[in-house]
Design a protein around this nucleic acid. Structure first.
Lengths: 186, 186
DNA sequence: CCCAGCATGTAAGAGGTTACATGATTGC
DNA sequence: GCAATCATGTAACCTCTTACATGCTGGG
C-alpha cells in the first residue's frame, strides 16, 4: 500500500508529529490522499519498527509531549524503490455514478439535491485550490515546488471537470421533469 | 457501502448470475465501479439472505448450472432509500500524485516510464469509451440510456483530463533533465 | 466550569485483495 | 492431452472506518 509512502514524502517535506501529519492530511495533502489520525499513528509505529523513520520525543512545557518523526536512510531507500516500481492508474469508484444509473428505476428528480450538493462541494474545493495556487505557486518555482504544483493542477483540472459534469447532469434531470415519472411515489 | 447498490442496479438493468456480473464489472460497469468475483459472490449471498435479491437456479445441459439473481421488491426499496440518502463526493487517492511529490527527493526522470504508462492506459480507456459511445449512445436516448450516457461522459471527461495532465507532467519532468540531478545514482 | 484544541493511542468490525479449490466443457 | 472459459465458492490477510479512551491546556 502507499499510505506508508505518502507519509514518507510528507515527512521528507517536513519532519512532523503524528498529530501534525493528521492535520496536514485534512488540508493540503488530503487533497490527493486522505487518511485519519488512527491510520497515521498505526503506520508510523509500523514504519518506526521497520526503521524507515526515527522518532525524537520533544517535551513540551505548556503543551503535551510530541514525537517528531524523520525519515531514515532506509526509509528514503524504500521510497526510491517504490518510485521505480510500476503501477496501474487507479480505477474509479464513485457512488454518484451508481446513483445516476439507479435513478432510472426511481424518480430521477430525487437525485437533484445530491447533485447540487456535489456541485457545491466541487466548487468549494476548486476555490480552495485556486487560493493555494496563487498563494504558494506564483512566480518562479524550484523543482520541488514545480512538482507539487503539478499535483495541485490535477486537482484543479478535476474539480473543473466535475463542476461542468454536475451542471450537465442537473440539466439532464431537469429535462425529465416535464415527462411523466416512470414510477409514481406516495 | 455501495457495492450492494451497484449490484442491485446491475441486476435491475439485467438479471444475471454472479459470474456474469463479474464479467460485466470487468468491462462496462467496471469503468465506474470495480469488483472481483469473490466480492460479488459474497455480497450476492448476503443480499439473498437479506431478501433484496432472489435466486433461481437454471440447470445447464452442456454448461454448468447458474444461479440467476433478480431484485426483489425489498431490494428495490433499499435502492430507493439509498438514492435519497445524501453523501459527499469521494476523496481522491492517487498513488501517482504521491510519486510525483516523492520524485523531488530522487531523480525525477525515474518517473517518466510510469507517466508514459499512465498516459497510454488513459488513452486506451478513452478509446474504449469512444467506441461504447458511438455504439450504444448514438441518436435519441430513452431515460435509462440518457442516464447511462451521462455516466459514460464522466469517464470520457476524466480520461481526457488525465491525458492532458500526463502530457503536462511529462513535459515538466523533461524540463528537469538539463539541470543537474539533486541526488546522483550509480 | 465547560468546551475546543493539542496529542497519542486501542479495539472492533466492515470492506477489499490475493491465493486457493473444484469441476465441467470447448477448442487447438 | 492441455489450456481457456464457464461457474461457484472458501480462507487468510490487509486496510480502512468508527467508536472509544486518556490527559493536558487555554479561553470564554
Amino acid at each position: 500500500m502507499s499510505l506508508d509512502h505518502a507519509l514518507l514524502v510528507s515527512l521528507l517535506e517536513k519532519p512532523s508529529s503524528g498529530y501534525e501529519l493528521a492535520r496536514r492530511f485534512d488540508r493540503s495533502i488530503g487533497y490527493f490522499w486522505h487518511a485519519t489520525h488512527q491510520q497515521i499513528y498505526k503506520v508510523l509505529a509500523r514504519m518506526e519498527e521497520a526503521g524507515w523513520v526515527a522518532a525524537r520525543v520533544e517535551a513540551g512545557e505548556s503543551a503535551p509531549d510530541r514525537k517528531l518523526f524523520s525519515v531514515s536512510a532506509s526509509g528514503r531507500a524504500e521510497l526510491g524503490r517504490w518510485l521505480a516500481e510500476p503501477s496501474d492508474p487507479e480505477g474509479v469508484r464513485d457512488a454518484l455514478m451508481v446513483k445516476l444509473r439507479a435513478a432510472a428505476f426511481d424518480d430521477p428528480a430525487r437525485l437533484l439535491p445530491e447533485l447540487e450538493h456535489h456541485r457545491a462541494t466541487h466548487a468549494n474545493r476548486l476555490t480552495a485550490y485556486r487560493v493555494i495556487e496563487s498563494r504558494d505557486f506564483a512566480g518562479v518555482l524550484d523543482r520541488q515546488r514545480a512538482l507539487q504544483y503539478q499535483v495541485l493542477k490535477s486537482g484543479i483540472r478535476f474539480e473543473q471537470g466535475w463542476l461542468e459534469w454536475c451542471g450537465e447532469a442537473i440539466k439532464l434531470l431537469h429535462s425529465f421533469e416535464q415527462e411523466p415519472p416512470r414510477r409514481e411515489k406516495k
